[in-house]
Amino acid sequence: MAVIGRLRRARYLERGELVVTVTLLGALSVVYIVPFIWMALSSLKLPQELFIVPMRWFPKKLEFSNYARMFREFPFLLDLRNTMILVVVNIVSAVLSNTFIAYGFSKIEWKGREPLFYVVLATIILPFQVVMIPLFIMFHTFHWIGTFFPLTVPGFFGNAFFIFLLRQFYLSIPNELSYAAKIDGANEFMIYSRIVLPLSSAAIATVVIFSFLRTWNDFIGPLIFLSDNRLYTLSLGAQQIMQNLDPKWDLLLTLGVVMTFPVLVLFFLLQKYFIQGIAMSGIKG
């Protein structure tokens, strides 16, 4: 009894309040979740049913053939292939470059490190629009417009947010390990590759996830830099379909489900890293 009493004081909701709060939260959650349910259900409707007034929640018949139709009528597999190429390249480049760069910003003492790191942080908030036009002009002189290069090459030179994320993580790795290795004659690269990297798998996982999300969702990059529809990504492809004379709205929702689903699966499998990445960006800065 005494224990419970103490606990109750520490919490600040009475049972009644708790019921009210949970109910309100539940209601709000429904609001947040309904569009997903609606999208999933609508992806199984025929167009005639989709446009009915008033709206009907459940399709009369589950039209799974929409998914087959989407594969047939949209260049889905081609766009998926393009997106996956970019995803893979960007993940590899993000991991390679940022784990390396962050090491220089955390594990080695050198003059100018801190001021330069502030520059890294400042670039996080630089709006893309400021560099967009010169990049477009620069890439066109490289003959890169209409290729994947503008969407992949910059990734090999580090990303401010990832550098920040990994640096924070590296700082929590005790330096004693590297001192010991140094006494044994290891150079910085060996310490980076054999000690720090293996210990950083959690942070690397976060980098991989965010790198995936950025590439999967990117719209303005492909819009500006790609021209040939054989290189379109899923995001750009979806937007282009909306521009067609006959956009096939029902299939666009099917595509929406197909594009959202893998992200959700990934999230549920790797929730910890998602939340960690998001939370890290906020508090330790």
């Binding site: 003959h143 417009i145 209409g146 819009l223 500006i224 021209s227 529809n229 750009l236 282009q240 521009q243």
Partner: peptide, 20 residues
């Protein structure tokens, strides 16, 4: 090269011409 976004109206063709 299919450019349903409008190769003419979004700068891609300009870039291609200017870039040779």
């Amino acid at each position: 090269i299919a450019t349903p976004s409008g190769g003419i109206t979004n700068g891609k063709l300009l870039a291609a011409i200017a870039g040779g």
